[in-house]
Design a protein around this nucleic acid. Structure first.
Lengths: 189, 189
DNA sequence: AGATCCATGTAACTAGTTACATGATTCC
DNA sequence: GGAATCATGTAACTAGTTACATGGATCT
Protein backbone atom coordinates (compact mmCIF):
# COMPACT_ATOMS: atom_id res chain seq x y z
CA UNK A 1 0.00 0.00 0.00
CA UNK A 2 1.32 3.41 -1.08
CA UNK A 3 0.25 6.88 -0.02
CA UNK A 4 2.04 8.10 -3.16
CA UNK A 5 -0.40 10.92 -4.13
CA UNK A 6 0.59 11.19 -7.78
CA UNK A 7 -0.93 13.16 -10.63
CA UNK A 8 -3.67 11.35 -12.53
CA UNK A 9 -4.80 11.47 -16.12
CA UNK A 10 -6.83 14.64 -15.69
CA UNK A 11 -3.75 16.42 -14.36
CA UNK A 12 -1.77 15.43 -17.46
CA UNK A 13 -4.63 16.46 -19.72
CA UNK A 14 -4.50 19.91 -18.12
CA UNK A 15 -0.70 20.08 -18.34
CA UNK A 16 -0.96 19.20 -22.02
CA UNK A 17 -3.45 21.99 -22.59
CA UNK A 18 -1.34 24.50 -20.67
CA UNK A 19 1.83 23.43 -22.48
CA UNK A 20 0.10 24.56 -25.64
CA UNK A 21 -1.26 27.79 -24.24
CA UNK A 22 -1.55 29.35 -20.75
CA UNK A 23 -5.20 29.61 -19.76
CA UNK A 24 -7.69 30.30 -17.00
CA UNK A 25 -9.65 27.43 -15.49
CA UNK A 26 -12.66 28.60 -17.43
CA UNK A 27 -10.77 28.52 -20.72
CA UNK A 28 -9.47 25.03 -19.92
CA UNK A 29 -13.04 23.86 -19.36
CA UNK A 30 -14.02 25.27 -22.78
CA UNK A 31 -11.01 23.74 -24.49
CA UNK A 32 -11.92 20.41 -22.88
CA UNK A 33 -15.15 20.39 -24.82
CA UNK A 34 -13.56 20.64 -28.22
CA UNK A 35 -11.13 19.57 -29.64
CA UNK A 36 -9.51 17.89 -26.63
CA UNK A 37 -12.89 16.52 -25.61
CA UNK A 38 -12.69 14.16 -28.57
CA UNK A 39 -10.44 12.01 -26.37
CA UNK A 40 -10.63 13.50 -22.87
CA UNK A 41 -13.26 15.46 -21.01
CA UNK A 42 -13.79 17.11 -17.64
CA UNK A 43 -16.14 19.63 -16.02
CA UNK A 44 -15.04 22.88 -14.48
CA UNK A 45 -15.89 21.48 -11.04
CA UNK A 46 -13.17 18.90 -11.53
CA UNK A 47 -10.72 21.29 -13.16
CA UNK A 48 -10.47 23.97 -10.45
CA UNK A 49 -9.44 21.65 -7.61
CA UNK A 50 -7.06 19.78 -9.93
CA UNK A 51 -5.33 23.04 -10.87
CA UNK A 52 -4.84 23.72 -7.17
CA UNK A 53 -3.27 20.27 -6.70
CA UNK A 54 -0.99 20.79 -9.71
CA UNK A 55 0.11 24.08 -8.22
CA UNK A 56 0.81 22.42 -4.85
CA UNK A 57 3.14 20.06 -6.64
CA UNK A 58 4.82 22.91 -8.49
CA UNK A 59 3.67 21.75 -11.94
CA UNK A 60 1.80 24.95 -12.75
CA UNK A 61 1.87 28.57 -11.55
CA UNK A 62 -0.80 31.26 -11.74
CA UNK A 63 -0.85 35.01 -12.13
CA UNK A 64 -3.90 37.09 -11.35
CA UNK A 65 -5.24 38.99 -14.35
CA UNK A 66 -8.23 41.28 -14.89
CA UNK A 67 -11.40 39.31 -15.58
CA UNK A 68 -15.14 39.32 -15.29
CA UNK A 69 -15.77 36.92 -12.37
CA UNK A 70 -16.63 37.75 -8.74
CA UNK A 71 -13.33 36.16 -7.63
CA UNK A 72 -9.84 36.97 -8.90
CA UNK A 73 -9.26 35.59 -12.41
CA UNK A 74 -6.18 33.37 -12.56
CA UNK A 75 -4.12 32.52 -15.60
CA UNK A 76 -2.17 29.27 -15.26
CA UNK A 77 1.04 28.27 -17.03
CA UNK A 78 3.14 25.07 -16.88
CA UNK A 79 6.41 25.23 -14.96
CA UNK A 80 9.62 23.49 -16.03
CA UNK A 81 8.86 20.74 -13.49
CA UNK A 82 5.37 20.32 -14.89
CA UNK A 83 6.70 20.04 -18.42
CA UNK A 84 9.20 17.42 -17.30
CA UNK A 85 6.52 15.41 -15.48
CA UNK A 86 4.31 15.51 -18.58
CA UNK A 87 7.17 14.39 -20.87
CA UNK A 88 7.92 11.48 -18.54
CA UNK A 89 4.29 10.43 -18.37
CA UNK A 90 3.93 10.53 -22.16
CA UNK A 91 6.68 7.97 -22.69
CA UNK A 92 6.02 5.87 -19.57
CA UNK A 93 5.23 2.18 -19.92
CA UNK A 94 1.58 2.03 -18.82
CA UNK A 95 -0.52 -1.06 -18.32
CA UNK A 96 -3.64 -1.17 -20.53
CA UNK A 97 -6.54 0.85 -19.16
CA UNK A 98 -9.97 -0.65 -18.46
CA UNK A 99 -12.29 -0.09 -21.40
CA UNK A 100 -15.83 1.22 -20.98
CA UNK A 101 -17.54 1.41 -24.34
CA UNK A 102 -21.27 1.86 -23.94
CA UNK A 103 -22.07 1.51 -27.65
CA UNK A 104 -20.41 -1.84 -28.03
CA UNK A 105 -22.10 -2.98 -24.83
CA UNK A 106 -25.45 -2.13 -26.36
CA UNK A 107 -24.63 -3.86 -29.64
CA UNK A 108 -23.52 -6.92 -27.70
CA UNK A 109 -27.11 -7.16 -26.46
CA UNK A 110 -28.70 -6.59 -29.87
CA UNK A 111 -29.85 -10.23 -30.12
CA UNK A 112 -32.55 -9.41 -27.53
CA UNK A 113 -34.49 -6.95 -29.70
CA UNK A 114 -36.46 -7.35 -32.92
CA UNK A 115 -35.04 -6.67 -36.34
CA UNK A 116 -36.39 -3.16 -36.72
CA UNK A 117 -35.12 -2.05 -33.29
CA UNK A 118 -31.75 -3.59 -34.12
CA UNK A 119 -31.55 -1.66 -37.39
CA UNK A 120 -32.51 1.54 -35.56
CA UNK A 121 -29.74 1.00 -33.03
CA UNK A 122 -27.16 0.43 -35.76
CA UNK A 123 -28.38 3.58 -37.53
CA UNK A 124 -28.08 5.54 -34.28
CA UNK A 125 -24.52 4.32 -33.73
CA UNK A 126 -23.66 5.06 -37.36
CA UNK A 127 -24.89 8.63 -37.05
CA UNK A 128 -22.63 9.19 -34.03
CA UNK A 129 -19.57 8.02 -35.95
CA UNK A 130 -20.54 10.11 -38.95
CA UNK A 131 -20.84 13.25 -36.84
CA UNK A 132 -17.47 12.68 -35.25
CA UNK A 133 -15.84 11.96 -38.61
CA UNK A 134 -17.17 15.23 -40.01
CA UNK A 135 -15.83 17.12 -37.00
CA UNK A 136 -12.38 15.54 -37.34
CA UNK A 137 -12.21 16.27 -41.04
CA UNK A 138 -13.16 19.89 -40.45
CA UNK A 139 -10.46 20.33 -37.82
CA UNK A 140 -7.95 18.66 -40.12
CA UNK A 141 -8.87 20.96 -43.01
CA UNK A 142 -8.02 23.94 -40.79
CA UNK A 143 -4.53 22.55 -40.22
CA UNK A 144 -3.91 21.52 -43.81
CA UNK A 145 -0.97 23.21 -45.45
CA UNK A 146 0.18 24.69 -42.16
CA UNK A 147 4.00 24.41 -42.20
CA UNK A 148 4.09 24.05 -38.39
CA UNK A 149 2.09 20.84 -38.66
CA UNK A 150 5.09 19.14 -40.28
CA UNK A 151 7.42 19.99 -37.41
CA UNK A 152 7.33 17.09 -34.92
CA UNK A 153 8.20 19.43 -32.05
CA UNK A 154 5.17 21.65 -32.71
CA UNK A 155 1.83 20.93 -31.00
CA UNK A 156 0.01 21.12 -34.33
CA UNK A 157 1.99 18.09 -35.50
CA UNK A 158 0.48 16.07 -32.65
CA UNK A 159 -2.96 17.52 -33.32
CA UNK A 160 -2.81 16.33 -36.92
CA UNK A 161 -1.70 12.85 -35.82
CA UNK A 162 -4.56 12.42 -33.37
CA UNK A 163 -7.13 13.80 -35.81
CA UNK A 164 -5.93 11.45 -38.53
CA UNK A 165 -6.29 8.58 -36.08
CA UNK A 166 -9.83 9.67 -35.44
CA UNK A 167 -10.58 9.78 -39.15
CA UNK A 168 -9.16 6.31 -39.79
CA UNK A 169 -10.94 4.64 -36.88
CA UNK A 170 -14.27 6.37 -37.48
CA UNK A 171 -14.19 5.36 -41.13
CA UNK A 172 -13.59 1.79 -40.05
CA UNK A 173 -16.49 2.09 -37.61
CA UNK A 174 -18.77 3.31 -40.43
CA UNK A 175 -17.80 0.32 -42.53
CA UNK A 176 -18.63 -1.86 -39.54
CA UNK A 177 -22.07 -0.28 -39.19
CA UNK A 178 -22.79 -0.89 -42.86
CA UNK A 179 -21.79 -4.52 -42.48
CA UNK A 180 -24.03 -4.90 -39.46
CA UNK A 181 -26.95 -3.45 -41.39
CA UNK A 182 -26.39 -5.87 -44.25
CA UNK A 183 -26.05 -8.77 -41.84
CA UNK A 184 -29.32 -7.89 -40.14
CA UNK A 185 -31.16 -7.42 -43.43
CA UNK A 186 -29.95 -10.65 -44.99
CA UNK A 187 -30.50 -12.76 -41.86
CA UNK A 188 -33.23 -15.42 -42.02
CA UNK A 189 -36.31 -14.66 -39.97
CA UNK B 1 -33.32 17.42 -9.64
CA UNK B 2 -34.42 13.77 -9.63
CA UNK B 3 -33.94 11.09 -6.98
CA UNK B 4 -34.73 8.62 -9.77
CA UNK B 5 -32.28 5.87 -8.69
CA UNK B 6 -32.01 4.09 -12.02
CA UNK B 7 -29.81 1.26 -13.19
CA UNK B 8 -26.46 2.36 -14.62
CA UNK B 9 -24.22 0.88 -17.29
CA UNK B 10 -22.69 -1.71 -14.99
CA UNK B 11 -26.16 -3.02 -14.15
CA UNK B 12 -26.93 -3.48 -17.84
CA UNK B 13 -23.58 -5.13 -18.44
CA UNK B 14 -24.47 -7.66 -15.73
CA UNK B 15 -27.99 -8.14 -17.09
CA UNK B 16 -26.48 -8.80 -20.52
CA UNK B 17 -24.15 -11.41 -19.09
CA UNK B 18 -26.94 -13.08 -17.13
CA UNK B 19 -29.27 -13.04 -20.14
CA UNK B 20 -26.69 -15.22 -21.84
CA UNK B 21 -26.09 -17.51 -18.91
CA UNK B 22 -27.08 -17.52 -15.21
CA UNK B 23 -23.96 -17.12 -13.08
CA UNK B 24 -22.57 -16.49 -9.62
CA UNK B 25 -20.99 -13.13 -8.82
CA UNK B 26 -17.63 -14.77 -9.04
CA UNK B 27 -18.33 -16.13 -12.51
CA UNK B 28 -19.56 -12.71 -13.63
CA UNK B 29 -16.30 -11.18 -12.46
CA UNK B 30 -14.37 -13.75 -14.51
CA UNK B 31 -16.53 -13.25 -17.56
CA UNK B 32 -15.99 -9.49 -17.21
CA UNK B 33 -12.29 -10.01 -17.82
CA UNK B 34 -12.70 -11.70 -21.16
CA UNK B 35 -14.44 -11.47 -23.59
CA UNK B 36 -16.84 -8.84 -22.20
CA UNK B 37 -13.86 -6.95 -20.75
CA UNK B 38 -12.94 -5.97 -24.31
CA UNK B 39 -15.61 -3.29 -24.03
CA UNK B 40 -16.69 -3.23 -20.37
CA UNK B 41 -14.95 -4.11 -17.14
CA UNK B 42 -15.66 -4.26 -13.42
CA UNK B 43 -14.16 -5.76 -10.27
CA UNK B 44 -15.91 -8.21 -8.02
CA UNK B 45 -16.14 -5.51 -5.33
CA UNK B 46 -18.35 -3.53 -7.67
CA UNK B 47 -20.30 -6.52 -8.91
CA UNK B 48 -21.61 -7.90 -5.60
CA UNK B 49 -23.35 -4.74 -4.42
CA UNK B 50 -24.71 -4.10 -7.93
CA UNK B 51 -26.27 -7.57 -8.00
CA UNK B 52 -27.99 -6.77 -4.71
CA UNK B 53 -29.38 -3.53 -6.19
CA UNK B 54 -30.59 -5.35 -9.32
CA UNK B 55 -32.34 -7.85 -7.10
CA UNK B 56 -34.00 -5.04 -5.09
CA UNK B 57 -35.43 -3.76 -8.34
CA UNK B 58 -36.62 -7.21 -9.34
CA UNK B 59 -34.32 -7.43 -12.37
CA UNK B 60 -32.53 -10.56 -11.18
CA UNK B 61 -33.22 -13.40 -8.75
CA UNK B 62 -30.84 -15.75 -6.98
CA UNK B 63 -30.97 -19.32 -5.81
CA UNK B 64 -28.47 -20.71 -3.33
CA UNK B 65 -26.36 -23.56 -4.72
CA UNK B 66 -23.55 -25.65 -3.28
CA UNK B 67 -20.20 -23.93 -3.63
CA UNK B 68 -16.75 -23.57 -2.18
CA UNK B 69 -16.93 -20.19 -0.40
CA UNK B 70 -17.34 -19.44 3.29
CA UNK B 71 -20.70 -17.78 2.59
CA UNK B 72 -23.65 -19.23 0.67
CA UNK B 73 -22.98 -19.42 -3.07
CA UNK B 74 -25.65 -17.65 -5.10
CA UNK B 75 -26.55 -18.23 -8.71
CA UNK B 76 -28.26 -15.24 -10.33
CA UNK B 77 -30.64 -15.25 -13.29
CA UNK B 78 -32.46 -12.42 -15.12
CA UNK B 79 -36.17 -12.01 -14.50
CA UNK B 80 -38.73 -11.07 -17.15
CA UNK B 81 -38.64 -7.48 -15.82
CA UNK B 82 -34.86 -7.42 -16.05
CA UNK B 83 -34.93 -8.66 -19.62
CA UNK B 84 -37.47 -6.00 -20.51
CA UNK B 85 -35.40 -3.25 -18.88
CA UNK B 86 -32.32 -4.43 -20.77
CA UNK B 87 -34.16 -4.51 -24.10
CA UNK B 88 -35.43 -0.97 -23.52
CA UNK B 89 -31.99 0.30 -22.61
CA UNK B 90 -30.42 -1.27 -25.70
CA UNK B 91 -32.65 0.66 -28.07
CA UNK B 92 -32.92 3.87 -26.02
CA UNK B 93 -31.80 7.16 -27.53
CA UNK B 94 -28.71 7.99 -25.44
CA UNK B 95 -26.67 11.17 -25.54
CA UNK B 96 -23.00 10.59 -26.46
CA UNK B 97 -20.86 9.52 -23.52
CA UNK B 98 -17.77 11.43 -22.39
CA UNK B 99 -14.66 9.89 -23.93
CA UNK B 100 -11.53 9.11 -21.90
CA UNK B 101 -8.85 7.71 -24.14
CA UNK B 102 -5.48 7.72 -22.41
CA UNK B 103 -3.50 6.61 -25.44
CA UNK B 104 -4.71 9.41 -27.66
CA UNK B 105 -4.08 11.84 -24.82
CA UNK B 106 -0.47 10.70 -24.69
CA UNK B 107 -0.07 10.91 -28.46
CA UNK B 108 -1.53 14.39 -28.39
CA UNK B 109 1.47 15.37 -26.24
CA UNK B 110 4.03 13.61 -28.41
CA UNK B 111 5.45 16.90 -29.69
CA UNK B 112 7.10 17.37 -26.27
CA UNK B 113 9.46 14.40 -26.52
CA UNK B 114 12.42 13.63 -28.78
CA UNK B 115 12.13 11.55 -31.90
CA UNK B 116 13.28 8.28 -30.37
CA UNK B 117 10.90 8.54 -27.44
CA UNK B 118 8.09 9.38 -29.86
CA UNK B 119 8.84 6.30 -31.95
CA UNK B 120 8.92 4.17 -28.79
CA UNK B 121 5.52 5.47 -27.76
CA UNK B 122 4.04 4.72 -31.16
CA UNK B 123 5.55 1.23 -31.02
CA UNK B 124 4.04 0.70 -27.55
CA UNK B 125 0.62 1.80 -28.75
CA UNK B 126 0.94 -0.40 -31.83
CA UNK B 127 1.72 -3.45 -29.73
CA UNK B 128 -1.42 -2.91 -27.69
CA UNK B 129 -3.59 -2.82 -30.79
CA UNK B 130 -1.84 -5.87 -32.20
CA UNK B 131 -2.47 -7.89 -29.05
CA UNK B 132 -6.13 -6.97 -29.04
CA UNK B 133 -6.51 -7.75 -32.73
CA UNK B 134 -5.03 -11.21 -32.19
CA UNK B 135 -7.42 -11.84 -29.29
CA UNK B 136 -10.45 -10.76 -31.35
CA UNK B 137 -9.44 -12.93 -34.28
CA UNK B 138 -8.99 -15.93 -32.02
CA UNK B 139 -12.44 -15.48 -30.48
CA UNK B 140 -13.92 -15.05 -33.96
CA UNK B 141 -12.27 -18.23 -35.20
CA UNK B 142 -14.01 -20.14 -32.38
CA UNK B 143 -17.39 -18.88 -33.61
CA UNK B 144 -16.71 -19.39 -37.31
CA UNK B 145 -19.06 -21.81 -39.00
CA UNK B 146 -21.35 -21.93 -35.98
CA UNK B 147 -24.90 -21.98 -37.39
CA UNK B 148 -26.21 -20.13 -34.28
CA UNK B 149 -24.01 -17.16 -35.13
CA UNK B 150 -26.19 -16.44 -38.19
CA UNK B 151 -29.40 -16.26 -36.14
CA UNK B 152 -29.92 -12.59 -35.13
CA UNK B 153 -31.83 -13.65 -32.01
CA UNK B 154 -28.93 -15.74 -30.72
CA UNK B 155 -26.28 -14.18 -28.44
CA UNK B 156 -23.49 -15.54 -30.63
CA UNK B 157 -24.76 -13.38 -33.48
CA UNK B 158 -24.13 -10.30 -31.35
CA UNK B 159 -20.76 -11.63 -30.21
CA UNK B 160 -19.65 -11.99 -33.81
CA UNK B 161 -20.81 -8.45 -34.62
CA UNK B 162 -18.88 -6.88 -31.76
CA UNK B 163 -15.76 -8.94 -32.45
CA UNK B 164 -15.83 -7.96 -36.12
CA UNK B 165 -16.09 -4.34 -35.04
CA UNK B 166 -13.04 -4.82 -32.89
CA UNK B 167 -11.13 -6.35 -35.79
CA UNK B 168 -12.02 -3.53 -38.18
CA UNK B 169 -11.17 -0.71 -35.77
CA UNK B 170 -7.96 -2.31 -34.50
CA UNK B 171 -6.77 -2.84 -38.07
CA UNK B 172 -7.45 0.83 -38.75
CA UNK B 173 -5.52 1.71 -35.59
CA UNK B 174 -2.55 -0.38 -36.76
CA UNK B 175 -2.56 1.45 -40.08
CA UNK B 176 -2.62 4.69 -38.11
CA UNK B 177 0.40 3.64 -36.05
CA UNK B 178 2.33 2.79 -39.20
CA UNK B 179 1.50 6.18 -40.66
CA UNK B 180 2.66 7.91 -37.48
CA UNK B 181 5.94 6.00 -37.61
CA UNK B 182 6.54 7.06 -41.21
CA UNK B 183 5.62 10.64 -40.41
CA UNK B 184 8.08 10.73 -37.52
CA UNK B 185 10.87 9.15 -39.55
CA UNK B 186 10.46 11.38 -42.56
CA UNK B 187 10.11 14.60 -40.54
CA UNK B 188 12.90 17.17 -40.86
CA UNK B 189 15.10 17.53 -37.77
C1' DA C 1 2.63 -27.96 3.08
C1' DG C 2 1.80 -24.37 -0.11
C1' DA C 3 -0.33 -22.35 -4.14
C1' DT C 4 -4.32 -21.62 -6.75
C1' DC C 5 -9.04 -21.51 -7.49
C1' DC C 6 -13.76 -20.93 -5.83
C1' DA C 7 -16.70 -17.64 -3.48
C1' DT C 8 -18.67 -13.48 -1.14
C1' DG C 9 -18.48 -9.64 1.06
C1' DT C 10 -16.93 -4.71 3.35
C1' DA C 11 -13.93 -0.42 4.01
C1' DA C 12 -11.48 3.31 2.48
C1' DC C 13 -10.26 5.64 -1.09
C1' DT C 14 -9.98 8.34 -5.92
C1' DA C 15 -12.38 10.05 -9.96
C1' DG C 16 -16.13 12.07 -12.05
C1' DT C 17 -21.10 14.18 -12.20
C1' DT C 18 -24.72 17.27 -10.94
C1' DA C 19 -26.28 20.92 -8.50
C1' DC C 20 -25.70 25.18 -5.80
C1' DA C 21 -23.73 29.83 -5.35
C1' DT C 22 -22.07 34.38 -6.81
C1' DG C 23 -21.48 38.39 -9.69
C1' DA C 24 -19.54 41.43 -13.55
C1' DT C 25 -19.77 42.44 -18.61
C1' DT C 26 -21.58 42.28 -23.16
C1' DC C 27 -25.01 41.51 -26.61
C1' DC C 28 -29.93 41.87 -28.22
C1' DG D 1 -34.47 44.24 -18.91
C1' DG D 2 -33.01 39.53 -19.97
C1' DA D 3 -29.93 36.14 -21.86
C1' DA D 4 -25.41 34.68 -22.76
C1' DT D 5 -20.64 34.72 -21.63
C1' DC D 6 -16.88 35.17 -18.44
C1' DA D 7 -15.16 33.38 -14.13
C1' DT D 8 -14.32 30.60 -9.79
C1' DG D 9 -15.45 27.96 -6.46
C1' DT D 10 -18.01 24.23 -3.02
C1' DA D 11 -21.31 20.35 -1.72
C1' DA D 12 -23.39 16.16 -2.34
C1' DC D 13 -23.56 12.55 -4.89
C1' DT D 14 -22.42 8.14 -8.07
C1' DA D 15 -18.97 5.14 -10.06
C1' DG D 16 -14.90 2.74 -9.83
C1' DT D 17 -10.33 1.07 -7.51
C1' DT D 18 -7.52 -1.02 -4.05
C1' DA D 19 -7.11 -3.30 0.00
C1' DC D 20 -8.83 -6.17 3.83
C1' DA D 21 -11.18 -10.35 5.43
C1' DT D 22 -12.55 -15.21 5.43
C1' DG D 23 -12.37 -20.09 4.40
C1' DG D 24 -13.22 -24.59 1.83
C1' DA D 25 -11.64 -27.49 -2.27
C1' DT D 26 -8.30 -28.96 -5.42
C1' DC D 27 -3.92 -29.44 -7.43
C1' DT D 28 1.31 -30.18 -7.04
Amino acid sequence: MQREESTGSLGFALLGLLARKPSTGYELARRMERPVGYFWSANHSQIYPELARLEDRGFVRHTVIEGAGPRPTKRYAVSARGRKALREWVVAELEPQPVRDLETLRLWNIWLVDRQAALDLVAQVRRGHEDRLTAYEQELADLEGDPEAVDPTHPKFASVLTLEGGVLTRRAALEWCDRMRQRLESAPR
